[in-house]
Design a protein around this nucleic acid. Structure first.
Lengths: 327, 327
DNA sequence: CTGAAAGCGCTTACAG
DNA sequence: CTGAAAGCGCTTACAG
């Protein structure tokens, strides 16, 4: 069986209390005893049982991370970065892929609470699902407003929309279309669209927003993009609300013999590592995923360890125009 | 504070033992008592503490998943699918991104053992890192041979290599190049290359394998691909060992005015959901990620619950030629 | 500087 | 059908 603290104590000829003390570096222990204990731990290949520690300490050092799915590189990267910063701080990550499914998410919340996680980072679309205010579990939301009580981490989506649109304008575009993913109101991401519309109006240019219906994403995107090209002529710029859509636009343009960027300029949104690698030609608004992940866990830690009441706030990150050759 | 079992017992007017019994559906309890207990749990919003349960039961229902990084959609999808099948079986996933870093991985192993995980699924390149045979923790390896004792889940990489190469041959290609990611010997993935070489030799065609040096992947890939085009003329087919490389090939071809698939046919490897979405034109060998994930956790569960000694075996999955327009 | 005892929140023989 | 007691592997006052 796995050795426990009393086995170590026995081997070192001391009491369990003492072993625990050297384990936690607490109180005074003579160098000699320390050495004996370390030696015994080594000999037995002892590793403390974190379950028991967590039970006593009422601190599991585990945090729950709920994302739609890590299959999507944006969330995959986000999860990876969150986990990275957690590991650096001695925290562990319980991964939850909600798949936009309310029922699944509800189960995850219960699971996380049963497992005594110290806090959770959630990127969910299921508003009002949980009575977040009910339990005083530290929570940080990603890009979504969940409740008055919960701080949200986001990048400056309005700034991103402005950057994208003005970049297209400066490049000489006159007729710019915006293609939007399935609209989820009250989401910071919708500011991308608002920014586009504001900028266009300011320039007295027509506002042309298309929205992809939230059906089977893959074909829906292709179809929606085809519709845009069918319905509109002389488009010279497209600002897509995410990189998949932008790449679908470029593909469709190519098939129709429209050259990018000469006759059509395309700007995407997100700029995850993988998309940058796989499509370096794409001009896109890059979200600082790593920084956002870091802020999220720092802020969560503030709540977890915080003596002070952490105010509900929105932590907004600057966004970057990453120039490829598509615009 | 969070209610505990004794609070529920008190509220229901029974003993903690009884509450535990209804919680676990064990032994005989009168319907009446059951109702009282459920009512009390509801009223107190009681949720059992899994830490305490796991401690007593010596079963955490947590499994560790070590991947290079979920930023990469192949591993992101793999992690998501593993987590999905775990959730269905009441298991929880502790996520570890090793980033190909031996030191990080070593720490993860220790962390997982401290947390009393029931088993681990590992996709690691760090052979010989851990004395896997040392501890009798159930382990399943993904695509990598770690030790005689550890079963490995893989897809039939040889079959994939044959499929890709013969598809190119059937499409009329005469001069086919294989571009390989950084070579990691003894890895099932190298069978892709072996298959290519076998098929080419059999047809008395020249074997032309290029290998990408394991440096900064992004530029390395672009550069390696450019080299291939510089050094070789009249190439009419390229079999790339993963989809990123295949897409880099298509991009480079486009820049050089080589039309795909007319003058050059390209086949990739992996076929993750995201790449299929973002590049539906790519012909690729698709790995059955979901099935592999399912097999992995089923096999792990066999070890965990197994009374019988689970034999070390390789569980090979069939692979699929997914036809796009690139070949 | 060190140890015996109680407790973290559960569960399970063992009685009744 | 139900409860008192002991124990899962730790830690922390409290004594000494």
């Amino acid at each position: 069986m796995k050795p426990k603290i009393s086995d170590v104590a026995h081997a070192a000829g001391v009491s369990p209390t003492t072993v625990s003390r050297v384990l936690n570096n607490r109180g005074y222990i003579s160098e000699d005893t320390k050495k004996k204990v370390y030696k015994a731990m080594d000999a037995l290949n002892y590793l403390p049982n974190d379950l028991a520690r967590s039970l006593y300490n009422k601190r599991s050092n585990i945090i729950g991370v709920i994302v739609p799915t890590t299959s999507n590189p944006f969330y995959g990267e986000l999860a990876a970065k969150i986990e990275h910063h957690c590991a650096e701080k001695g925290l562990k990550v319980l991964l939850c892929n909600s798949l936009f499914n309310v029922e699944k998410e509800r189960n995850y919340w219960e699971m996380l609470r049963r497992n005594q996680v110290d806090g959770v980072i959630v990127c969910t679309y299921n508003r009002g699902l949980i009575d977040y205010d009910d339990h005083h579990l530290p929570i940080v939301a990603f890009d979504h407003y969940l409740s008055k009580r919960i701080p949200v981490i986001s990048s400056n989506n309005y700034e991103g929309g402005v950057l994208a649109t003005t970049h297209l304008l400066k490049s000489g575009c006159k007729k710019i279309i915006h293609i939007n993913g399935p609209l989820d109101l009250e989401t910071p991401a919708n500011l991308r669209r608002k920014a586009y519309e504001d900028v266009m109006k300011e320039q007295d240019l027509p506002v042309l927003t298309y929205e992809i219906k939230p059906v089977l994403k893959q074909e829906a995107t292709a179809k929606a993009v085809a519709t845009v090209f069918d319905e509109q002529q002389d488009i010279d710029g497209i600002f897509a609300s995410d990189d998949s859509i932008a790449l679908a636009v470029i593909r469709e343009a190519r098939e129709r013999g429209i050259t990018v960027p000469d006759s059509l300029k395309v700007v995407g949104y997100d700029g995850s590592e993988f998309v940058r690698e796989i499509a370096p030609e794409l001009t896109t608004i890059q979200q600082p995923i790593n920084k956002m992940a870091e802020t999220a866990i720092n802020h969560l830690l503030l709540q977890i360890e915080g003596t002070t009441q952490v105010p509900n706030q929105e932590l907004v990150h600057h966004v970057l125009l990453r120039k490829g050759t598509s615009a």
